[in-house]
């Protein structure tokens, strides 16, 4: 049973989305809406297609040899598989944070400045400085790195690196931020910081987060979608999904009976 969001308020919406890797179908006919200004959590057992769905939204699957997509997926009502759509532009609007922190082997400053630079978001150095500082601030990292902006981004701890990657994504000023298990490589304290950050970012960005932690989904998200074997089983308010799921599969998964 899927709850569609009233027309017009969905930021991203999938209708009949199928994804194939070669002959293997990874997603079956997904209908899913993602509301603006909310955190949507994607949960489900390993290999059920959560990352695949996430990577469709910024067309990262284009990079995968033999990946094919059919059905429609829209961002603000525009089909993102439209031939006329500029992928580079799309990815500037839809930022992504990966499972493993992947800072560039550049200085902390350059890591954050990279996006604004390639998109020409700053007219001069002062503006660029401002964007960088702002993004670091929003990512809750500024205090820790202010004095060492010229050090390599890879010299930070794992948790700091992940927040650096979030700052890097924010710096481009995207509308949607996709996060694929952003805390799976972090310890509980770093995880708590990132979760706090996600909560703050919710006001300005639409966030989709893949997570294996039920608690995390419950803590940070307003809506939760449950995937199983490439199918969307159920989507609804997080409260509801966790307290009163309609589908037995969902029930089984969140109570830890399988997955």
């Amino acid at each position: 049973m899927n709850q569609y969001i009233p027309k017009g308020t969905a930021k991203v919406s999938a209708r009949g989305l199928d994804v194939f890797y070669g002959d293997k179908q990874a997603l079956h006919h997904i209908d899913l809406d993602i509301a603006a200004g909310e955190v949507t959590a994607l949960i489900g057992p390993s290999g059920c297609g959560k990352s695949t769905f996430l990577r469709c939204i910024n067309r990262m699957n284009d990079l995968v040899e033999g990946a094919r997509v059919s059905g429609t997926l829209t961002l603000d009502g525009n089909d993102i598989h439209d031939r006329r759509l500029d992928v580079v532009q799309l990815r500037a609007r839809v930022g992504m944070v990966f499972q493993k922190p992947n800072p560039f082997p550049k200085s902390i400053y350059e890591n954050v400045a990279y996006g604004p630079r390639i998109h020409g978001l700053a007219r001069d150095r002062a503006e660029l400085d401002e964007i960088v500082m702002n993004s670091l601030e929003k990512a809750g990292l500024l205090a820790e790195v202010e004095s060492r902006l010229s050090e390599s981004g890879t010299s930070l701890s794992g948790g700091q690196q992940q927040r650096l990657c979030i700052a890097r994504a924010i710096a481009v000023n995207p509308e949607v931020i996709l996060m694929d298990e952003p805390c799976s490589a972090l310890d509980p304290i770093a995880t708590a910081k990132v979760e706090e950050l996600i909560d703050e970012l919710r006001d300005n960005y639409t966030i989709v987060i893949v997570t294996h932690s039920m608690q995390q989904a419950a803590r940070v998200s307003q809506r939760t979608a449950f995937f199983h074997l490439g199918k969307l089983i159920e989507v609804g308010g997080t409260e509801e999904i966790f307290t009163n799921p309609c589908e037995p599969l969902t029930q089984g998964y969140i109570t830890g009976r399988f997955g």
């Binding site: 990815r91 990966f98 560039f104 990279y114 994504a169 481009v172």
Partner: peptide
């Protein structure tokens, strides 16, 4: 060079050549 670096740059909206020149080659 790890694929994750390429994805990081492409995910920020870099073109392929920007990714190669600014991220992959330096790495």
């Amino acid at each position: 060079v790890p694929q994750s670096l390429r994805e990081g740059a492409l995910g920020l909206g870099a073109t392929r050549s920007e990714t190669v020149i600014q991220v992959v080659i330096p790495a």
